[in-house]
Amino acid sequence: MVAFTRNLDEEITRRGWELILNGTAVKSKNWQLDLGLNWSTFASYYTKLDPVYSAKKPWVKVGERADHFISRDFQRVPAGKGDQSGSLILNNSGRPIVHGYDVLFGYYDPKFIWGANANLRYKNVSFFLSFDGVNGGLANTRTESYMWQAGVHPNSLSPERALDVATPGSNNYLGQGVKVVSGAATYDANGNILTDTRVFAPNDIKTTYKQYMVDLHNSSAWGGNGSKADTYSRTFFKLREISLSYNVPAKLLHKVAKAASISLIGQNVLLKAKQFKYSDPDGGNEDFADPSTRYLGFKINFTF
């Protein structure tokens, strides 16, 4: 077979700052408090483009971020149409329409990530806490997308759904948006509007609740970014670890072991996320990630 390989002259630079503070706040014979704090921010930027082979997209420019989150939005009324601007455009059966072109939703990388830990010791007993978190950045939630599509999302219980089920074949859900009364629009290769003669009116066509939700939360487990409705902020913080340890004094060991300790350890004890609820955003992109798993344990450690 014949394959051609070419190195691009494209250059992406990752820039960022990291701040680390570590210190001992209190130290005496019986007491010791160690504190640690770190904070960092970073992002990738295009610093050079290949004149021929770099992607020709509006978001690929020198100085722009390279971690773009691209997907298909729904068709919406363009700016300059008064109150209607930004509304969803619904089709002849009252269903949202996915736009045929990729648009920039935002960026994958967070604004910053942070971590903090503290270790307090009194005599032989230590208490350790570690928090960390992410602020900003986008991620899809495949799990919730599929929960909506399968009708098992807790929020999917609605009066319209009950009506649809009560009378099979009836349509009871009125989507919020507009319909096209007349006219058409044409687009260039990047999806920018070239001509637009459309006239809109508020939507008055009902569809089934299921159909509308399936359209709104459509995504494919086979890849690609999903719907805007399932694009969440990655912001969260976690109590990553909490532990209580007791160092057994050497005189109690009777030379059986050099050292010994007993600890109670909890990992992933607490998770607060801005938008993620049914899965753990910790992995960055959520493609059927499990819900956050909490570990609680007990550890006995001997050193011989």
Binding site: S54, A55, K57, T186, D188, A189, N190, L194
Partner: peptide, 25 residues
């Protein structure tokens, strides 16, 4: 195919302009 915009932009644009008034639809 969308990658024509990157791989062969001049010829692609010419074809779209000449046939369809600039809208690949």
């Amino acid at each position: 195919p969308t990658d024509e915009l990157t791989k062969n932009p001049v010829n692609y644009q010419k074809a779209v302009d000449e046939q369809f008034g600039g809208a690949d639809d």
